[in-house]
Design a protein around this nucleic acid. Structure first.
Length: 230
DNA sequence: GCCCAGGTGGGTA
DNA sequence: TACCCACATGGG
């Protein structure tokens, strides 16, 4: 595959193109910071539509607060979040998140502003059920920190475009790709990640629709594909 | 019926 | 470190 490390212009150009094509995405679709955190866990390996049903169940039953989630029994919580899939596992994860919130800020999420971003990230990663993507989603979308979220769509799009993140294709290397080529602006990171998810859903699923893709002209693997077929 | 969706943790070599 | 697998419902 044709590959090269992308520069500032490539990363910024991709953002401009996606924004022009899809428009503003208005993420994260949630009312409170705690709702964002809960949604970040519930949407793991699941569509947002499924996760939002689970959130609606929590809201309707009066359980969309850390205090309520602390009290509710695990099996009852699991039933409420059933539409999001992996409901037993996610019930445990939400319990762990709430336990951490109690210990770190006493459920006063505003107090988390006292933490520096890297320290907060370390703490989040130590919570059961919170890995790098969920931690970064919470940091960016709930707490407004300039942290770029990497998900399956982002990796797939970067790989398809031929923007090599380097030899080690792990979470951090994809994240550095964006951090090194963009100003650390939470609003920019917010919109960019949302656009990548939108683009991933539209053109870069497992079965890509490269022929009609809005960024095919700057996609190295697509150009290579065209060359092969000449 | 089959594939995939805004991942993570635990076990094994 | 690098895989492999369990976790599970819902929509196309």
């Amino acid at each position: 595959m044709l590959e090269r490390p992308p520069g500032k212009n490539d990363i910024k150009n991709l953002f401009d193109r996606l924004l022009a094509y899809y428009g503003h995405q208005h993420w994260w679709p949630a009312k409170t910071r705690f709702e964002v955190m809960t949604g970040a866990v519930l949407t793991q390996a699941t569509s947002w539509e499924s996760a939002s049903k689970a959130i609606a169940n929590l809201k309707a039953s009066g359980n969309l607060s850390p205090q309520a989630l602390e009290k509710i029994k695990e099996d009852e919580l699991a039933i409420l979040i059933r539409p999001s899939g992996y409901y037993n596992a996610k019930a445990l994860k939400l319990k762990a998140l709430v336990k951490w919130l109690k210990g770190s800020c006493g459920y006063d999420i505003g107090r988390l502003e006292d933490y520096d971003t890297s320290g907060l990230r370390r703490e989040l990663l130590a919570v059961h059920g919170i890995g790098p993507e969920t931690a970064d989603s919470i940091l960016l979308y709930a707490l407004g920190r300039p942290v770029f979220v990497i998900d399956a769509y982002t990796r797939r799009i970067i790989d398809r475009l031929g923007f090599s993140p380097g030899r080690n294709r792990n979470y951090d290397s994809y994240q550095r790709l964006f951090a090194a080529n963009l100003a650390p602006d939470p609003a920019l990171f917010n919109e960019y990640h949302a656009l990548l998810v939108m683009h991933g859903k539209t053109f870069c699923r497992a079965k890509p629709q490269c022929e009609s893709c809005c960024v095919a002209d700057i996609c190295y693997s697509y150009k290579e594909h065209e060359i092969e077929n000449e």
